[in-house]
Design a protein around this nucleic acid. Structure first.
Lengths: 197, 197
DNA sequence: GCCGGAAAACTGAATACTCATTCAGTAGGC
DNA sequence: GCCTACTGAATGAGTATTCAGTTTTCCGGC
């Protein structure tokens, strides 16, 4: 089997795992269930992943890679203003999660618990992501459009916190609104604050 | 055994559960471990709680009750302005979690995963809490100190999201800063936004 | 006070599972 | 016929829950 087909099978198993874990939770999903959904035997899972936990890590890694790549594109663009970049980061975050509900469930619910186990790993990826947001805040300070006394990393955590809560709320709500529709209100509040100016 | 002593034993088991679950996670903690920590036999747990899951629910209920009671005190106070109330809600949230790291770990990490199982229950408590924050935002709109076009519930979710992220960040960080010290920066950013005015 | 026995609390070993993981064997491409 | 990919039943470790038996508390009568 070529490396390409191997990669395809790996993806097929990962996709099955995302689907099942989103519906039943990590501990509620058996390796057998994932194997059945992927159309392979139980043992086959172990030809591609070290353990059930490794499977979960791999879901996280695959998703975060896409996430960070796209975010980096926005942040590194020359010539764009910080406020514009921030708006686009917010939109990106909400639309990537909003377009794949299963993945969103895993991110908002399953990984929280798993952070406990995978603390080191997850946190380094998250730090990368937070650092990207912080760079935009920093740029905004330089440009004089954001307050000069902001702690960039602190502000990045605030931004992340809002996005994260929006995503969790959307995941847990049964109404089928689009997550991305909260992009503008988030940006407005974030940039302008609550207070009348 | 009087009702009072029964209550005391129940508390003793709950305290042991908080301590162990915070350290090892829900799935990493056995009922035996909790029993040993509480100084009772395994079977005794089942005289006070229907199941291991019920134990976790009870931790949540006990904590949320305190949380909501104290928050309601602030929100219902006559004569205080919305901005002041919001500041105090923020401080309350961060100090209640900041003063009990084990409880904070369970709230920020363990319950996320458990929301999956206990979705209905947890959400109703959370809704109550969000509604309290939303009432303050509403009051601020009436007073003319908060923007008139804010969606109060949306703003409440933003506030909650920020607090939640601060708490998670604190729980996962090893540095021993005080969580409550983030109270002022959060309030400033929340009220004033990022942008220079 | 103090006894006795009934009820309430408590104990912890035994039960009855559930699953992640393994590995001896099969299939089929080259 | 060799090698790679795959299979899935068997294994074995782990653990929530039960329950028959023990201890403690309670309380009315003396």
């Amino acid at each position: 089997m070529s490396g390409e087909r191997k990669e395809a099978r790996r993806e097929q198993i990962l996709d099955a795992a995302v689907l099942e874990i989103a519906r039943r939770g990590y501990y509620g999903t058996t390796v057998s269930t994932i194997a059945r959904r992927a159309g392979v035997a139980d043992g086959t899972i172990y030809l591609y992943f070290k353990s059930k936990e490794d499977l979960l890590v791999s879901i996280f890694e695959r998703a975060m890679q896409r996430f960070n790549e796209e975010a980096a594109c926005i942040v590194e663009e020359d010539g764009a203003g910080a406020e514009d970049k921030l708006r686009r980061l917010v939109a990106l975050h909400l639309s990537l999660l909003g377009e794949d509900r299963d993945l969103a469930v895993i991110f908002q619910v399953e990984f929280r618990h798993t952070l406990h186990i995978l603390e080191r790993l997850s946190r380094s990826r998250m730090r990368d992501y937070l650092a990207l947001i912080a760079r935009v805040v920093e740029q905004g300070k330089q440009e004089g459009v954001f307050k000069h006394d902001l702690d960039a990393l602190f502000a990045a955590k605030v931004v992340f916190g809002i996005l994260d809560e929006m995503a969790t709320d959307w995941v847990l709500s049964s109404k089928n609104t689009r997550l991305a529709s909260r992009s503008d209100p988030v940006n407005d509040l974030l940039l302008g604050g609550l207070r009348v100016t």
